[in-house]
């Protein structure tokens, strides 16, 4: 599988099969890891080859794939659009056609779980950075996806909130792919992929992959 934007190839000759429950993805800026994450739920369709999720092709079964794979973005500000916390969490359910009564129930449940119950009717943009990232996560989890992709979920957070998000990620029952620069976040993961200039250069246990990543970066001027 490969992907290019116009003449620029961002991922080349990649063949990988993810079966583990916790997969981490690391790499320098511009290494292609964000594109890799977007390929996993059909936000980006490969220009060469195919991506399949549970034997669904992301190109032809985009909607089914997106229902199955939740996606959490680096910048929660970019994914929160509705005026209040509860409305924003309900957005995905509305798109799924969930009935209003069940919607309200599921929203309340997930807000309680993330400690946002007291903020249900608050304006979403007044939440703190950490709360916003929790809200973004809640908005995805309420849809009960089977798998979740997180694109740098802790990059914009302070240490405390980063740790909270890390704990929540560790608790998720779903299988998870996390793209990150936050190496401690990958502790306890089953597998870590290292990307460099569009190629997969290491694919190993977290300790071994991170060591490979560190030595790769240390060799650069």
């Amino acid at each position: 599988m490969g992907h290019s934007y116009g003449a620029r190839t961002v991922l080349a000759d990649l063949t990988v099969r993810l079966t583990e429950r916790r997969v981490g993805v690391v790499g320098a800026n511009g290494s292609g890891k964000s594109t890799f994450a977007r390929l996993l739920n059909g936000l980006v369709v490969p220009t060469e080859g195919t991506v399949t999720v549970d034997s669904l092709d992301t190109r032809t079964a985009t909607r089914a794939v997106r229902r199955r794979v939740g996606f959490v973005f680096q910048d929660p500000d970019a994914q929160i659009v509705h005026p209040t916390v509860a409305e924003d969490v309900a957005f995905g359910l509305e798109n799924m056609g969930v009935a209003p009564a069940e919607r309200a129930e599921r929203v309340a449940e997930v807000l309680t779980r993330y400690g946002l119950a007291g903020h249900a009717d608050h304006p979403a943009h007044l939440l703190s950075g950490g709360q916003k990232q929790l809200l973004a996560l809640a908005g995805v989890l309420v849809m009960r996806p089977a798998r979740i992709v997180l694109d740098e979920p802790t990059t914009l957070l302070d240490l405390l909130n980063a740790r909270r998000v890390a704990l929540l990620v560790a608790e998720l029952e779903q299988s998870v792919v996390v793209v990150t620069h936050d190496l401690p976040l990958l502790e306890g993961f089953d597998r870590v992929l290292v990307f460099d200039t569009g190629r997969l250069v290491a694919d190993d246990s977290p300790a071994a992959a991170i060591a490979a990543y560190r030595s790769l970066m240390a060799g650069r001027p």
């Binding site: 909607r63 939740g70 996606f71 970019a78 994914q79 995905g92």
Partner: peptide
């Protein structure tokens, strides 16, 4: 930012109620 917002909306199924008769050649 607007581009990312659109991606995030799509990831949460924003285009799910699109008219089903969309010809596949106009794929997004």
């Amino acid at each position: 930012m607007a581009h990312t917002t659109a991606e995030a909306l799509d990831a949460r199924g924003a285009d799910d109620d699109a008219p089903p008769a969309r010809p596949p050649s106009r794929g997004r």
